[in-house]
């Protein structure tokens, strides 16, 4: 009798754990596991890839770089093959030896990537990442509610727009906006400057309607607010539904970001992962994605085919002299905990 109960117990435990083990080995066919930002790929791209290659795609999304990083760090062994983090996070993952070197013989389309996106600071040798998308942090606003010119970050501290402002629920971006408004570097590690930024965010808090994520697009389209800090890759998705919102980058400059596809060291389907990267760099696919997000594709041929309104938009494709003024996020070694504490503090206040 005892044995029977033991068996029942064992079966129960087994059942409880099957979903965890099941997903990595449920199929005999070829698969590739991809981890990308939410709402960050054009509809149909994955289906097209599956159709052309016969490789099944398992696709999951994350909300911020930190969220993605922690999920990978806290799982042991194989999780995903391809991940698409941002610049500073790629540096961090590279330093922690989480990335696999890409065999560019399997990614011939990467040759079509514009020279200026190759070997950027986050991946100096260019051996670990393939640029996916790039853009800026900008202010989206409703011109009916905001009639003045938007040229300063200070507008996000303007009492006139109290409870009509959306900020991003992401520590680097929101603290970054505060640092910019104070005239400091986005990558400041100076405790005094960061303290000022914290006070600045606390001062702003009563004016902020909510700290949001991907849903800011819907909220701005529904005119829930007047101003929102957004990533320029959201512009295309907003325009698709509503082209009456306006966008601006303050004169003081902003953050320019580069998101790139990387292959994890623990990847079990590296060849499929490389096939996927190659697919993303194919000019027609790159253009589908860039058009969907209203961004300027890093693939030269794709960019050339994109609409002029995107190519000439200084928000998504800033001219070189402007770009030189913008800052890329870097790792904030030594101040990482301070950033986390500030953000927790601001949210809790």
């Amino acid at each position: 009798m005892k044995r029977l109960y033991a068996l029942v117990l064992a079966l129960t435990l087994l059942l409880a754990f099957t979903p965890l083990t099941g997903c990595s080995q449920d199929d005999s066919g070829e698969t590739v596991r991809i981890y990308n930002w939410g709402d960050y790929i054009a509809p149909g791209v994955i289906e097209l890839f599956e159709e052309e290659t016969g490789i099944e795609v398992v696709y999951d999304t994350f909300e911020t770089n930190e969220d993605m990083y922690l999920k990978l760090k806290n799982s042991s062994g194989y999780t995903y093959d391809v991940v698409i983090p941002s610049d500073y996070m790629i540096s961090k993952m590279l330093r922690e030896d989480m990335l696999a070197e890409i065999d560019f013989n399997n990614v011939p389309n990467a040759a079509g990537i514009d020279e200026r996106f190759k070997n950027l600071d986050y991946d100096p040798t260019g051996a670990y990442s393939v640029p996916y998308m790039w853009g800026t942090v900008c202010i989206a606003y409703d011109p009916e509610q905001v009639t003045e010119e938007v040229n300063s970050w200070d507008i996000l501290w303007d009492e006139d727009y109290a409870r009509r402002i959306f900020m991003i629920d992401s520590e680097r971006d929101s603290i970054g906006v505060a640092l910019l408004s104070l005239g400091y570097s986005l990558n400041s590690t100076d405790p005094d400057e960061l303290e000022e930024a914290k006070q600045k965010l606390l001062e702003q808090k009563p004016l902020v309607l909510a700290y949001t994520g991907d849903d800011v697009k819907d909220k701005m389209i529904a005119r829930e607010g007047a101003l929102a800090v957004i990533w320029s890759c959201d512009i295309g998705i907003i325009r698709e539904q509503d082209d009456t919102l306006a966008y601006a980058i303050p004169d003081a400059g902003t953050n320019v970001w580069y998101d790139a596809a990387v292959i994890l060291k623990d990847a079990e389907n590296k060849a499929n992962a490389e096939a996927f990267l190659n697919f993303l760099c194919r000019p027609d696919v790159a253009q589908m994605n860039a058009d969907y997000m209203g961004s300027a594709s890093p693939v030269s041929e794709a960019l050339a085919n994109q609409d002029e309104s995107i190519r000439n938009d200084p928000i998504v494709n800033p001219p070189a002299e402007e770009l030189a003024k913008y800052e890329v996020f870097q790792m904030v070694d030594g101040a990482a905990e301070l950033y986390e504490e500030i953000w927790s503090y601001v949210l809790a206040s």
Partner: peptide, 13 residues
Amino acid sequence: GDIIEKQFKLVDD
């Protein structure tokens, strides 16, 4: 609950 979630999900604390 929000603050606790943040400690696990966004801040590794």
